[in-house]
């Protein structure tokens, strides 16, 4: 199993270094006095060479042992659908936080996100409601109250105020 991942990593390394070489071609040259010195593209390319080397090593190494084993190539053996959904659920909170907070305001928004997360983590409804509210208030208190960090107020609340 590991060999497949190694092979994938190796290929990724090769692609990445190729991209770095291609893209850094657009960087300007650096001329100090009358000499051209290592410029913006020098270091990324330097790193990319090593990445390329290790990538090729991984490809050869894992390729050889894969051929020896003649194992069926499977990528996502224990990564079932349900878990994938949960992954997406967790990661998505980072991207919905802006609209949710600006719509609901900090405390209700954070509570909502927290309840969602706790449900994903299989906490019971009532428990997750209580814990989430406490957690949201705690975060709000620390960041807004103690540290004066501006958190969004929420369009809904502003609507009520007129």
């Amino acid at each position: 199993m590991m060999e497949v991942w190694d092979l994938a990593l190796g290929i990724l390394c090769v692609l990445l270094s190729a991209f770095v070489f291609y893209y850094s071609g657009t960087f300007p040259k650096f001329i100090s006095g009358d000499k051209e010195l290592p410029g913006p593209s020098f270091f990324p390319r330097f790193v990319a060479i090593f990445i390329l080397g290790f990538g090729l090593f991984l490809i050869v190494n894992s390729g050889l042992s894969l051929i020896k084993k003649r194992e069926k190539i499977r990528f996502l053996d224990n990564l079932d659908k349900k878990m994938l959904l949960k992954f997406i659920a967790v990661l998505s909170t980072g991207f919905v936080v802006e609209p949710v907070l600006s719509l609901l305001g900090a405390v209700p928004g954070l509570t909502a996100i927290s309840v969602f997360l706790m449900r994903v983590f299989r906490v019971k409804w009532i428990q997750s409601l209580i814990y989430s509210l406490a957690l949201a208030v705690f975060i709000y208190w620390i960041f807004r109250g103690v540290f004066k960090l501006p958190l969004p107020e929420g369009k809904l609340i502003l609507l009520f105020r007129g």
Binding site: V107, I130, L133, A134, A136, V137, Y140, I157, R161
Partner: peptide, 20 residues
Amino acid sequence: LLWIAVLVAFAFIPVLSASA
């Protein structure tokens, strides 16, 4: 503990004040 958490939560819900 849970009760305390709930009470604290309510204490912090911002008071809506109509501004003139």
